[in-house]
Design a protein around this nucleic acid. Sequence first.
DNA 1: GGTAATAATTGTCAATGATACAATTATTAA
DNA 2: TTAATAATTGTATCATTGACAATTATTACC
Lengths: 236, 236
Amino acid sequence: MQIKKYTHQNRMLIAIDCIIFGFDGIHLKLLLIKRGFEPQKGRWSLMGGFVTSDENLDHAAARILKQLTGLTDIYLEQLFAFGDPYRDPTERTVSVAYFALIDINKYEEQISHEYSAEWFPLKKLPSVIFDHKEMIEMAKEKLRYKAAFHPVLFELLPDKFTLPQLQTLYEDVYDAIIDKRNFSRKILSTGLVIKQKDKEKNGSKKGAFYYKLDKRKYQAKFDSFLNLIPNPHSLK
Amino acid sequence: MQIKKYTHQNRMLIAIDCIIFGFDGIHLKLLLIKRGFEPQKGRWSLMGGFVTSDENLDHAAARILKQLTGLTDIYLEQLFAFGDPYRDPTERTVSVAYFALIDINKYEEQISHEYSAEWFPLKKLPSVIFDHKEMIEMAKEKLRYKAAFHPVLFELLPDKFTLPQLQTLYEDVYDAIIDKRNFSRKILSTGLVIKQKDKEKNGSKKGAFYYKLDKRKYQAKFDSFLNLIPNPHSLK
DNA sequence: GGTAATAATTGTCAATGATACAATTATTAA
DNA sequence: TTAATAATTGTATCATTGACAATTATTACC
């Protein structure tokens, strides 16, 4: 006996939109594309696409991220499902937003030029289509929330990085100035980083030691609660 | 000029499923219904329904929650979008799960009997259809995560409650024994509760003072980070 | 070769917050 | 009056956090 389909119900499009964060050493940035089709052709937009019939949401998000960046094995987390009836005026579309954290340098190597993509500092975003502004705001908030307790920001850094670089990243994410002594003590006390023997020497006479992430400890400790920024109680 | 619809894309059903938590004074419980239609008719299931063409996701969730419980103005938060291609074998359906926290007593007054619903303690859940088990597990985890820092568990209590009741709730949610002295000090120091003049006297000779939530402070402090359970660092 | 400039690295003290731990109080029932 | 029950209350120790500045390594210039 064949099972009947649900009748008298509305079927809708399911889209994925990706909020892609990168860090250039100074500022946290977002990767936007120029939309290549109507409606709103030519305006800035998050990278997105429709979920196909044989893939789940995570797969769709990874596929779409790879289309644009060429990258796989990227940190990707479901953010929220956006479903206002008229969020896309063309047709009812529920969009599941994902946020991604990538090493901006790896991206530059692999970039696809099909989409005329561009990095924008978070404080200088252009106007974007549909409800993408709302998605971006939520992603920023979730990133700040998460990074206050979980070492997720390492996903934005290259393999080798320095403590001052890491601190600059935290300071930009939280728009705050952090005390160097307290910061390094806190980071080192997590045991997540391993000091290297070589130094980075750009723009510094003394040079700063490189560190690498201890991937075992990173995975083991990722879900537990660390205390990574000062005064997390004043966070939203 | 009329805007064209997106062509060559798959349209799918969008469902909502509600993970409804309640607290009976002893244990945290979940409200399940006996599914009234095929497939899987007669098995236990989360309360759910399809999103209609003119409502957004939050509205759909509130509507579905009201259908079952009769309650409005309930704490309701989007949990996650579940989209495995065959999660519902009938037809491709993406389900957006919401979790709700309700005062179990209010529910008993308003209950709809259309759905043969039943409360189950979290540790004695029956087998449920589709991927509902996964939804429930994620909701439990998110509740524990959230309640460690935000005073969300008050949503489960009646207007007037005692500190021992509140503590029992926390102990059940975290499956832990909490020191009474430390717990009351912590709760009182948040300034979120107001001591009443009357006592609750069931099963206690001395009786425990009632408290009420200070709703102004509750709203003001909800998003900030309180430290509501001991050793949150060992949380997942 | 010495010196100035630059940025990285390192340490201490005070305040705060968290935890462990038990005696006292209010009430009822026998 | 006493025993039983559960609520209420306090303190001392320990760990964490935050505030704060001097020293070190290196380079470029004189």
